[in-house]
């Protein structure tokens, strides 16, 4: 993508080019991620926003190369600090995971081992990648817990003894245990209350200040708008709009972005919400042309026939025929 190239500056941590991840089901091929290109700069906090099924989690799992059959990455490049993750051997990729890219999942209860103490789980992760003895690793685990706002003695707790928010803090501690430069958080606060969410977000922002790049995947547009430097809007496997958070919210270009903003209740914008017509498409049989056209109030003839290009408008990228 020429345009994406021209927009990004030099200090890029992550460069994704033309990435497609498909799921091969009995009903047909589901294009969960469909030729996506994006960049992430050093110390940048990026928010990927979309509804369930838009491909945002699949994109994250593709970066980590954690896609399981019947899913498969079918094309594209994921350049991370210069190396193409898709060309690495499994063994090399395992070293990247955790050590260079950390990931926080939505449900901390299913990602933590219920039978093992918190401390042991962190120690195990550290010892897997670093040559340190148990005592040293345990000390590091305590420091990690403290860095996410938990008392160090929580190393002796089992996951069930912690609340949801505390467990998610443990997950972040695990994800940063090996000091990765990139942290991917997939809906880290979806199951949590707002106050706990705010505390988790504060930790992510601290991670950014310490020099890491952050990818926050969320369905909560206002959360992404508030916390991230840049926003990517995904719809039906495509990135339909991408740009500076403040500008994107102030002046959305893609009709989907605009519709989404107008349909979300907002505590401080005392306004009526507008219903967005229709529903997200079946990705095995997506509509021809622009996948959003059946729901689009501005759809033209060409939208029904041809896929829109990704166009640069005022420093923003938008995949829509309106701007051609």
């Amino acid at each position: 993508m020429m345009v994406a190239e021209s927009l990004a500056s030099n200090n890029k941590v992550l460069k994704i080019r033309n990435l497609s991840t498909h799921y091969f089901s009995r009903r047909g091929v589901l294009k969960a991620v469909d030729r996506v290109s994006m960049d992430l700069r050093k110390q940048e906090f990026i928010g990927i926003v979309g509804e369930s099924g838009c491909g945002k989690s699949t994109l994250a799992f593709s970066i980590m190369r954690l896609i399981q059959p019947p899913g498969k990455i079918v094309e594209g490049e994921i350049l991370f600090n210069g190396k193409d993750l898709l060309k690495l051997k499994d063994e090399e990729m395992r070293r990247v995971r955790g050590k260079e890219i950390g990931m926080v999942f939505q449900d901390p209860m299913t990602s933590l081992d219920p039978l093992e103490k918190i401390g042991d789980q962190i120690v195990e992760t550290i010892q897997m990648h670093e040559d340190v003895d148990k005592k040293e690793a345990l000390e590091k685990a305590m420091k990690l817990l403290e860095s996410v706002g938990l008392p160090g003695d929580r190393v002796n707790y089992y996951p069930h003894q912690l609340s949801g928010g505390q467990r998610q803090r443990v997950m972040i501690a695990l994800a940063i245990a090996l000091n990765p430069t990139l942290l991917i958080a997939d809906e880290p606060t979806t199951a949590l209350d707002v106050i706990v969410q705010e505390k988790i977000m504060e930790i992510l922002e601290k991670m950014k200040r310490e020099g890491r790049s952050i990818i926050l995947i969320t369905h909560d547009f206002s959360l992404a708008a508030e916390k991230s430097d840049r926003i990517l809007i995904m719809y039906a496997g495509w990135i339909v709009e991408m740009g500076d958070s403040m500008k994107l919210v102030a002046e959305p270009l893609h009709p989907y972005t605009k519709g989404l903003i107008e349909s979300v209740p907002d505590i401080w914008l005392a306004r009526k919400i507008k219903t967005m017509p229709g529903f997200p498409p079946d990705l095995i049989n997506p509509p021809p042309g622009c996948k959003f056209h059946p729901r689009c109030p501005k759809a033209k003839e060409i939208c029904k026939r041809e896929e829109p290009p990704l166009i640069e408008v005022n420093g923003r990228l938008v995949k829509c025929w309106l701007y051609e």
Binding site: Q166, I195, F221, S222, A225, E226, I261, V264, I267, W268
Partner: peptide, 23 residues
């Protein structure tokens, strides 16, 4: 007030009322 200051919004207000610990 603490709840309100934690709610994400497109138009973030300058409201910061803290809350300590857990329920």
């Amino acid at each position: 007030a603490a709840l309100l200051s934690a709610v994400p919004s497109f138009e973030k207000k300058d409201l910061r009322i803290d809350i300590k610990g857990d329920v």
